[in-house]
């Protein structure tokens, strides 16, 4: 009971802070829309895959991109929590570290989920108004998309928390953007199909768990995928479970 209340406290703090900072919510939505209109619109003018327009094609990729950036940033942010003493206030409470980790994951994944739901709503409006076409929105596809993205987000927040818990100062932030976030994004097939990859590139893409999240969501929303939905889902579940286990361990070992 006590642990649950503590987890709830951490979740409450993250979500309250996130929703109170309107500018953060808005900027987290603007960036994906820029991708959609400028990259999607620009390339879409001359690129399409069969009957699928490029803009439509990258919409699922942009959903994942949002989840990827926002989750990992969130996790790595605890390095800042450690620098100010809020982390100590939490660590000195009679709560175990696993609960703290769980509370953080729930908080971070809820923040990301809020952004995803806003983007999905915008997507539905785009379809209804004809800005975008070829996306199959219904109760089932939206539900599966949210489940896919949520599971992926949990694993990604864990990666962020693992990195953040091992970092001493926020200076390493740039390295994480360059060596973790961008490679995971570019190697995920968010921006291009993964059916006919050059042989040197294929292993990298297939080793990236985010690839399967993109493939699954794209399969559900626009019927364009390489693997089956179940296979994609299985991989991201395994990915997230492994990250949670490593993260729990990293939190137990975390020094302040």
């Amino acid at each position: 009971m006590g642990e649950l209340k503590g987890i709830y406290a951490l979740w409450y703090r993250e979500v309250k802070v996130f929703t109170r900072e309107r500018s953060r919510v808005i900027s987290s939505i603007i960036n994906p829309l820029l991708w959609f209109f400028i990259i999607g619109g620009g390339l879409g003018a001359s690129v399409s895959f069969g009957s699928i327009n490029y803009q439509t094609f990258i919409y699922p990729g942009i959903l994942i991109q949002t989840a990827l950036f926002s989750s990992i940033f969130f996790g790595v942010y605890i390095v800042w929590d450690k620098k100010i003493d809020f982390m100590k206030e939490v660590l000195v409470a009679p709560m175990n570290r696993t609960s703290i980790f769980v509370g953080k994951i729930l908080g971070g994944s809820t923040d990301t989920l809020i952004q995803i739901i806003i983007l999905l709503t915008i997507g539905v409006v785009f379809i209804a108004t004809g800005v975008m076409s070829g996306i199959n929105f219904n109760f089932f596809t939206i539900f599966v998309t949210i489940v896919f993205l949520y599971v992926t987000t949990v694993g990604l927040v864990s990666i962020g928390l693992i990195l953040g818990s091992q970092m001493e100062s926020p200076e390493g932030f740039q390295l994480i953007i360059s060596f973790v976030i961008f490679p995971m994004f570019f190697l995920s097939g968010a921006l291009f199909p993964i059916n006919n990859l050059p042989s040197w590139l294929a292993p990298f893409i297939l080793a990236n768990p985010v690839t399967y999240a993109v493939d699954g969501v794209r399969g559900v929303l626009i019927g364009f995928s390489r693997f089956s939905l179940v296979y994609d889902f299985l991989i991201i579940c395994i990915f997230s479970i492994i990250m949670i286990l490593i993260g729990t361990y990293a939190f137990k070992k975390m020094k302040i």
């Binding site: 209340k5 406290a9 206030e89 000195v92």
Partner: peptide, 30 residues
């Protein structure tokens, strides 16, 4: 469970109100 501590550096969340910070603390201490 037996101790309270006021750290040298600020450790309250500034995006929350004073009341919310205290409520959070109450939850953390069950």
């Amino acid at each position: 469970k037996s101790i309270g501590i006021v750290f040298q550096d600020p450790s309250s969340d500034e995006i929350l109100t004073g009341y919310e910070n205290l409520k959070l603390h109450g939850w953390l201490y069950d």
